[in-house]
Write a protein that binds this DNA or RNA. Structure first.
Lengths: 230, 230
DNA sequence: GTCTATACTAGGATAGAC
DNA sequence: GTCTATCCTAGTATAGAC
């Protein structure tokens, strides 16, 4: 009760009432450095002591702001992923109303790539960690990723529907290949390379629509069994 | 025809005296189940107790066969990755000598995808774990991945050199996008889906060379700054 | 709000019986 | 070779001073 815990019990979260702006700042700072550490070292490689040190505090002190390591990680990962999704949606929504389905998909992809590569370590951490997390933590993140995936699915389907991409391909597989390529960029991209994040996004778009081959187009490598899609 | 590692050397590893064929069998069994667990739960999510139980033994007993958890994991991950590389090389080498550079690249990609998806949990585990591992373990695996990456780089460069793919693109970026898409398949591919592993590999090849767009080809989305690459 | 000190646990590793 | 028992460390989490 030193902490002035008004015995009206806290809900699920910790969440401090006071909100001395300094306190909220600290909390944000913790989330920020946690995002960076999670992005570079992964969930398993990041201890509370690591986070605390990077945030200029001590492991025990983190419990004033968060209930547990898992809750902290969940907040970082889901907020990062949500930020990426919001950013991507906003970029698409900013297009003129008559933008083509191709343009919309291209915009979403480049926005996503650019965002995870240069804007949000937390988003990158989410992309890297998904599928590598202990079950209780994995669930909420998976739900979010499914939502994000559904959004991309809409864009792909719209493009297929109005003929911008071949509607006979397995759209889900194509989408997953693209998402995989995008998320994997975190493993190799370096800002000082010959291509910027924007360039990488554009290149990925080119792979989707045109490829980088020079030969005459071969519509479908395998005439049979292409599947219908999702 | 692919892997036939003849147990030759045994340097800094554990002793090797016994070799009751039953003992070697046990060792292999441990490596096998470890591969499966690492592929599904990741390195951090797999304890020695998990591995021991799956192999029908006890945690302490593993130390008869391996020096440490890290060494065990390293052996699983590197041998899986090496097997994938050997398999891919063998598939390419099996092509007629006059096979086109495009055909060679396509063969490598489909072989790699099919191998990690349906042949080797350990290879899949390597692909998923790389970049998410504690430094001492990460190093040897990174070296292997670099070697494998170099092999793909050769195939891409050969294709660019004889005009099968646009030589003005950042080849390294293109290659990494492709590798990323391939390795990420582990996160979403299900054998009972509409596309087989083979289909997914083919689709990825199509993305590289032709794309799945229907419009007239736009050679380079961005006339400037395409970079020359490595 | 943040500190220090400490309890507690999971899991890696070792020893010795068999 | 494998088992059981145990040690030991790292790391999460709690308590209470300030």
């Amino acid at each position: 009760m030193v902490t002035a815990q008004p015995e009206g019990r806290e809900p699920a979260r910790k969440r401090r009432a006071p909100v001395t702006s300094r306190g909220e700042d600290k909390r944000r700072r913790i989330l920020e450095v946690a995002g960076e550490l999670l992005a570079t070292r992964g969930y398993a490689g990041t201890s509370l002591a690591d986070i605390a040190e990077a945030a200029g505090t001590h492991a025990g002190s983190l419990y004033y702001h968060f209930d547990s390591r898992e809750q902290l990680a969940e907040e970082v990962l889901t907020s990062g992923t949500r930020a990426a999704m919001d950013h991507t949606r906003a970029a698409v929504d900013a297009l003129p109303a008559n933008a083509s389905s191709r343009r919309r998909l291209e915009t979403a992809i480049t926005a996503h790539v650019a965002f995870i590569l240069e804007r949000s370590p937390a988003a990158l951490a989410g992309a890297r960690a998904v599928g590598q997390l202990p079950p209780p933590l994995a669930e909420p993140l998976h739900a979010l990723f499914r939502e994000y995936g559904d959004y991309f699915a809409e864009l792909f389907e719209a493009a297929a529907a109005d003929g911008a991409i071949d509607p006979t391909v397995d759209l889900r597989a194509a989408r997953m290949l693209v998402v995989g390529a995008a998320n994997w960029t975190a493993e190799w991209f370096r800002p000082d390379g010959p291509s910027s994040a924007e360039d990488v996004g554009q290149l990925l778009c080119r792979l989707i629509f045109d490829g980088i081959g020079t030969g005459r187009r071969r519509p479908a490598p395998r005439p049979t069994g292409a599947g219908e899609h999702r």
